[in-house]
């Protein structure tokens, strides 16, 4: 396994449409309907599910930057058993996990998981949450196929 060797050059230079999509996605989730911490907790969990060191490093740095405790950051991987998240955060994490977890005998996002989320978020919030998850959904293939170097600047993270 070569976890820190980028496999392709800067994708945005090769295919400008990837850059454009990235820019729009970054502007998408700041409408205030989902707390900043929840956004990154959810995005950290998705990075963990996909085992992407690049995505988890990025989100851990963001969470530290907004003053989240190491206790909460460290508890994301086993949030179901953790006492440090409130019900709204738990509902958001459950939704993200359901989207990206195989469910051989049924639909991934069950009515129950959706109903729990709908208790804590209105429709604007739920659509924003879907976009928060979708933002990482867009970046997951870039991260797990392209393998950018974790923790560096966007100009240095790809094959030079």
């Amino acid at each position: 396994m070569s976890a820190t060797t980028p496999r392709f050059p800067n994708p945005g230079s090769l295919v400008p449409a990837v850059n454009d999509a990235t820019k729009v996605l970054y502007q998408a989730t700041g409408n205030g309907s989902i707390p900043r911490a929840t956004i990154s907790l959810v995005q950290l969990r998705i990075g963990q599910i996909f085992q992407s060191e690049y995505l988890t490093t990025l989100q851990v740095n963001i969470l530290r930057g907004i003053g989240e405790t190491e206790e909460r950051i460290g508890a994301v991987a086993d949030w179901k058993d953790a006492a440090v998240f409130d019900d709204a955060e738990r509902a958001a994490l459950a939704l993200a996990e359901a989207v990206f977890t195989e469910s051989p005998t049924g639909q991934r996002v069950t009515d129950e998981v959706y109903a729990e989320a709908a208790k804590h978020y209105d429709e604007e919030g739920l659509v924003t949450l879907a976009t928060v998850i979708g933002q990482i959904g867009f970046f997951v293939p870039l991260a797990v196929i392209g393998q950018p170097i974790p923790g560096t600047s966007p100009s240095k993270q790809w094959r030079q």
């Binding site: 496999r7 392709f8 050059p9 994708p11 090769l14 295919v15 449409a17 990837v18 999509a21 996605l25 939704l95 993200a96 359901a98 989207v99 639909q107 991934r108 996002v109 959706y114 989320a117 739920l126 659509v127 949450l129 879907a130 976009t131 998850i133 979708g134 933002q135 990482i136 959904g137 867009f138 970046f139 997951v140 293939p141 870039l142 196929i145 392209g146």
Partner: peptide, 24 residues
């Protein structure tokens, strides 16, 4: 390289829509 990036981008395109479809 360019084709691989587009393929990755196409997977990302679907990756963006997955939560909207599965949640919505």
């Amino acid at each position: 390289d360019k084709e691989l990036v587009v393929l990755t981008g196409v997977l990302g395109q679907i990756g963006y829509f997955i939560p909207l479809a599965l949640i919505g």
